[in-house]
Write a protein that binds this DNA or RNA. Structure first.
Lengths: 243, 243
DNA sequence: TCTAATAGCGTACACTCGACGCAATTACCG
DNA sequence: CGGTAATTGCGTCGAGTGTACGCTATTAGA
C-alpha cells in the first residue's frame, strides 16, 4: 500500500548474492518479471495481478512472495527491465546525439504502453534508467550548460516522450484485445470531433484547429514537432551561453 | 473496470435537466464531487473510495451510485471541476499570452496533486478542459502556424506542465500526512544522492550534474526552464514561418 | 549425520467496485 | 382530490485485489 523507498532500493540495486542453504528455488525473479512484462504489454498494467501471474507460471499465488516483497517492487523491476540497457551515444554534436537518444527511447515506450505511467514522479531509479540518463547527459557534456540546466533539459525531453507515449496508449485501461492502440486513439479522435461539432460555437478555435489537423496530423508528427521545438529552444540557450 | 466513452460524455456534457417525479434527492452530484476533490487533495486519488466518500457524507455507500454511474465517471468529473473555468487571455503577443496561460495553470496542478495523472492520454474532454485549450489556441491565433502545429504546441506545453506537476507530487501514493509534497521530493533527492555517491563510477556525468544542481536548482526553476525553452523553440518556428 | 536456514504455499483478512432488487416517496394526470 | 408511475434510498451479495502469518518439506554446511 505504502511507498517503501528502502525496499525499492534494495530490490533495484541488489547486493552480493549470499550462499543459500535451503531448497532450490523453482522460480526466478527474472522469470516473474519477464512474464509480468508480457502480460502488461498485452493487457495493460492493471492486468498484472499476482493471481494471474501465478497462474501463468503454474504456481500458487503466495509462492511469488518468496521472490518479491510486493507488487510495487515488481512494477519497479518491470520498468527498469523494460527500459533495457541504454543505447550507445551516436550522432553529430549535442543536437544529433540528443535527438538520436530520444528516437531510440521512443520505440521502447511504444513496445511497453504502460511504461510511461511508471517512469514518473519522485521515485527510485534503477540501473537502466540511470544509464539512459547518463547517456543523455553525455550528449550535453560539451556544452556550457550548468548541471541543473542539463538535468532540466533531459527532464524536458523525457517529459515530452512520456507525454506522447501516453497519447498513444490509454491510461489505466485494461484492454483485452491487442489492437487497442490505434482503435483507442481513433475512437477518441472521433469522439472529440463529435464533441467539437456539437459545441463549435463555444470552442471555435479548437474546432477549427482540430478539423484542420485531423486531415494532416498524426501522433508521430506530434512527437517530432515537440522534439524539434525543444531542441531549437535548447540550441538558442546553448548558443547564447557560448557567445 | 472498462472504459466507457459514451457514459463519460453523457456525464461530462449533461443534456437538458428533465423534470423529476420521485422523491427529492438528499444529495447532489456537485456535493459528492467537491468532497471527493477534498479527499484527493489531502490524501491522494487512491484514497477516493466510494466507502470513504459515503462515510464523509454520512450516507451508505450504495446511495452514491444514484448520482454517478461509477468511479471512473466521478474521477472525470473531479478533474474537470478541479481544473476550473479557464482564465481570461492576458499578455503581450502570443508569447506573453502562452506564458501567462501556463503560469496560471501551474498553481491549479499544485493545488490538486492528483490532477496530472488524470488529464493524460486519449480521454473525453470536459467543458473546462476544452475551455483551457481554447484559450491556449487563442494565444496562437495571430501566428501563421497550421492547425496541427497549434495543437502540437499546446500539447507540448501541457505535457511539460504535467511532467513538472508529477515531479512535485508522488504518483499513486496514498500519503496520510499533508506535508508530503516537500518531504517526498527531498527524500527522493537524498536517496538519489546516496545512490549516485555509491555508484559514481558508473554514472559520473549524472553524479556531477546532480551534485552541482542540488545546491542551486529547484523544481520551480525546472518549470521555467522548460517553459522558456519551449517558447524559444516555438518562436523560432513562428519567425521562420512569418519571414 | 545432524542442524539450521530456506522454499513452498494454504488459510485467513481487510479491502475494493459494483449488480440487483425491493420498499418508500413524490410528482404528474385524470 | 385520488391513483398511477417514476425515482430515490440502500441492504445484500459476489468477484476481485494485495498480503501477513505460520506450518511443513527440503537441502547445504558443520
Amino acid at each position: 500500500m505504502e511507498a517503501k523507498p528502502d525496499t525499492l532500493t534494495a530490490v533495484l540495486w541488489p547486493a552480493e548474492p549470499v550462499r543459500k542453504r535451503g531448497p532450490k528455488p523453482s522460480l526466478s525473479r527474472q522469470q516473474i518479471i519477464e512474464t509480468a512484462i508480457e502480460v502488461a504489454d498485452a493487457s495493460g498494467l492493471s492486468a498484472v495481478t499476482m493471481q494471474l501471474l501465478a497462474d501463468q507460471l503454474g504456481r500458487p499465488k503466495m509462492s511469488l512472495y518468496r521472490y518479491l516483497p510486493g507488487r510495487d517492487e515488481l512494477v519497479a523491476l518491470m520498468a527498469d527491465a523494460a527500459l533495457g540497457a541504454p543505447p550507445a551515444a551516436a550522432g553529430r554534436g549535442w543536437r544529433g546525439r540528443l535527438r538520436n537518444w530520444a528516437l531510440q527511447a521512443w520505440p521502447v515506450f511504444l513496445a511497453h504502453p504502460w511504461l510511461h505511467q511508471v517512469t514518473v514522479g519522485p521515485r527510485v531509479f534503477g540501473p537502466n534508467e540511470l544509464g539512459w540518463m547518463e547517456v543523455a547527459l553525455g550528449a550535453l557534456d560539451a556544452t556550457d550548460l550548468t548541471g541543473a540546466e542539463r538535468l532540466d533539459a533531459v527532464a524536458l525531453l523525457t517529459g515530452h516522450l512520456r507525454s506522447m507515449a501516453a497519447q498513444r496508449s490509454a491510461g489505466p485501461r485494461s484492454a483485452t484485445d491487442a489492437s487497442a492502440s490505434d482503435d483507442i486513439e481513433a475512437q477518441s479522435a472521433a469522439l472529440m470531433a463529435q464533441l467539437l461539432t456539437d459545441h463549435a460555437d463555444r470552442f471555435p478555435l479548437t474546432a477549427a484547429a482540430f478539423g484542420q489537423a485531423q486531415r494532416t496530423g498524426t501522433t508521430d508528427q506530434a512527437l517530432e514537432f515537440g522534439l524539434d521545438r525543444i531542441l531549437d529552444g535548447l540550441g538558442a540557450l546553448i548558443d547564447r551561453r557560448r557567445g
